[in-house]
Amino acid sequence: MMEPSAYLLLSGILFGIGVTGVVARKNALIILMSVEIMLNAVNVAFIAIGSYLGDVTGGVFAFMVMTVAAAEAAVGLAILIAIYRLKETIDITELSVLKW
């Protein structure tokens, strides 16, 4: 049996990689995928702590996170399709209409 801090460390690493993807990339599709990585990292932490405490709540919360991730991907990609139809680009630096 391993201690859960190793899982927490892995979760932190995955989350950091996801943050890098969101901040450093320009391609909107890859940014959405990085968000998925971040949500997955959180799930790893939930499951690790949940099984350490012998409590099912961690699993239930991970389930909720997965639901939100699926909804987020569906709506995010729909927005992306609408933007591409309008602007013919998925480069987020060119999508600055709302920028003051």
């Binding site: 201690e3 859960p4 801090s5 927490l8 932190g12 690493i13 989350f15 961690g58």
Partner: peptide, 20 residues
């Protein structure tokens, strides 16, 4: 920072109950 926090946790392993 996450690594430092995770180390500070210092959780010892326990046998997992039926949690998943």
């Amino acid at each position: 920072e996450g690594a430092l926090v995770a180390r500070r946790f210092g959780l010892a392993g326990t046998p997992a109950a039926d949690s998943g």
